[in-house]
Design a protein around this nucleic acid. Structure first.
Lengths: 370, 370
DNA sequence: GCTTGTACTTGAAACGCATCAAAGGGGCCG
DNA sequence: CGGCCCCTTTGATGCGTTTCAAGTACAAGC
């Protein structure tokens, strides 16, 4: 039960301590026989290198930390997925911490990662990074994800405004006259989506628009409540198009409308934002605008690598990924399904799998839709 | 840019090195003024403790590692969520690694965590833990999750057989005559589900049962393919009840059936397994049996704590969580929704939130349905 | 046989911190 | 005034590695 250390291996193998270390880190420096002998001894003894000691002695290890606000949010998972693949590609490990929607915890894990001699750290922050300014001048490369602000560090953000625009254009194309936007617009990303909607609608003053706050967590239950409220309105005050700033919200709204006997999309059309894979791989897919989460995670790691390789503290870089946002056109409802515009997401997915074997670039966004 | 270390803080604050260390780890031992002075200096200098050094010097830190096969699987997320909450409750951090369905990577991260002086490690293994036997005799507490085998370590598993039984009973109750089970039964957990179905059906020899393999990854596309195949059958060879061993599979099947003009559940009923939150918080929820993922994660951490506290290597413990599996009765289809049996998941969720403030025990499973 | 070079191997010196025995500084009592 | 005890602070020691300058062994060239 006593832990086996490197000196035990050295003694047992009859070599010196430094040689065992070399076997681990620079195997090419050793004579093949020696290497073999040491490896056998390592396995026989069940030796496991103490990472803490390695990191302490050797500086940063090849691993990245990623702090996410939640794990059950599809978008965050796409980020994680993209970051993971890119990190592995460079031979780095990725460790994920769940901040559980808690500022304090976010800060805690951030500090933890920075203190663990990670090679780099990424956060998808809840608040603006200005919130923890100390972090930006840390000795560890850090990249903020999915946040859009004038802070002097690296960040990668989706163009949330573009997403709003896309949704608005969708509504316009469907001939909407009265749009209700559901969601807690206080979150930066959502604010931008709303802004995008407003901008796109500026040319259409005849379209009425309304924004309804949905409570703090933007849950399906919140959406349900608002859906019920909408259903209860007299028909002429009821919108003909509802935008959930989140897919989960949109789902809740739909549930309520259907429950109250309102046809979707017959009487009210509903669309979401987030590209939540499960929202549209469900039996009746939801129309949604998918921000390029996978690509954001991927790009985040690339920025980290960039900082690591050019040791010089390069100029902070702001990357906006906008063009990748895409609409998955699908239907939201029960009866009058328009098959023509129904794009089964997993068909996209399958297409992407093929594409990825050819060119990496085009596969990225589709590949995220697991 | 040079890293600030504890000695810098000490010098700057005019105290000794050990005092700063105490400020960090045993603040109660310091005079309030001293503590305040040191904290101010820490903030002023932007000092960040080097975790590696702390761990090396002080033994294990209060953190757990969790290795998951994938992040985009709802069940794994529930595990993560339960583990996270329980860990935080005890003041531990939880770090998550994504093995990405890769044996090698799983092993890699496992070793990484064990080497990082984690206080404990949990895995939701892809293969049987016998696969990496070396791990079980490691000096770090380890708990296997969601795996059911005769291996001499700690594990927490859902009673997958019970889930199969529940599904089968559901089918029987609906008067099924011909059941098709869809999924790659080669995965241990799925095998047990199938076993449970068979056992429950043993008393009903009149019910025909068929198991169809769905390819390696059990994707929605796989389900779609099988759904299409089912739809293409002559009506009298078509099942009246389809069980997706995975919610995603079930979704795919439903999509295909509906596409081909077969009414669900009018002509064919479909149910899933997994309790995938997003599968049934969608606009048209899917009937599913929810294994207690949250509870598994929670219990896993509890077993870890147990091993940590009774320093003596207690007898390995096998915990099966079965009774918690519950059916979320909902509908799968378009028109003929039977409102009575529709249980909106988020209503459960809301109920659970209330319950959790009263008794912890009953809230567990509901709380997982975020 | 001596030198130079090559190919490995060695072991002492950090790495930054937690720990803990020991020292310091009051206050209190006799 | 001395002795005692409690509260606070000190700093040397070691945690398990990596690194790197120094060492060894052996081969080739003269």
């Amino acid at each position: 039960m006593a832990k086996v250390k490197i000196s035990d291996v050295a003694r047992e193998a009859g070599v010196s301590l430094g040689t065992v270390s070399n076997a681990l880190n620079h195997p090419e420096k050793l004579r093949p026989e020696t290497l073999k002998l040491i490896n056998e001894t390592i396995n026989r003894l069940g030796y496991l290198p103490n990472q803490s000691a390695r990191q302490l002695a050797g500086g940063a290890t090849k691993s990245f930390g990623l702090v996410l606000p939640r794990l059950d949010h599809g978008f965050s998972l796409q980020i994680a997925s993209g970051a993971h693949n890119e990190a592995r590609k460079h031979g780095y490990d990725l460790l994920i911490a769940n901040a559980d929607n808690d500022d304090i915890l976010e800060d805690h894990y951030l500090r933890y990662f920075m203190g663990t001699q990670m090679s780099g750290v990424m956060v998808q922050p809840m608040a603006s990074p200005d919130w923890h300014p100390a972090m930006t001048k840390m000795p560890v490369p850090i990249v903020h994800l999915d946040i859009h602000c004038s802070e002097p560090g690296y960040y990668v953000a989706a163009d949330n405004e573009a997403q709003g625009r896309i949704i608005a254009e969708l509504a316009i194309a469907r001939g909407a006259h009265h749009i209700v936007v559901v969601g807690r617009a206080a979150f930066m990303q959502l604010t931008l989506r709303v802004l995008g909607i407003h901008k796109a609608l500026a040319l259409h003053p005849d379209i009425k628009i309304e924004v309804i706050d949905a409570g703090e967590w933007n849950t399906a239950a919140d959406g349900y409540g608002i859906g019920a409220q909408i259903a209860a309105r007299p028909a002429d005050e009821r919108p003909d198009f509802v935008v959930g700033l989140t897919d989960v919200l949109a789902s809740g709204v739909i549930s309520a409308l259907v429950d109250k006997g309102i046809s979707v999309p017959g009487q009210v059309r509903v669309a979401g934002c987030d590209g939540n894979p499960l929202a549209w791989s469900g039996s009746v897919p939801l129309t949604t605008v998918a921000p390029p989460g996978y690509e954001i995670g991927r790009k985040g790691v690339q920025l980290l690598m960039e900082q690591i390789e050019n040791k010089a503290p390069a100029k902070p870089k702001h990357v906006h990924i906008g063009s990748a946002a895409r609409t998955v056109t699908a239907v939201t409802a029960t009866e009058d399904i328009n098959r023509q515009e129904l794009v089964r997401p997993f068909l996209l997915e399958r297409a992407s799998t093929q594409a990825s074997s050819q060119t990496d670039a085009t596969a990225i966004n589709l590949g995220a839709y697991l």
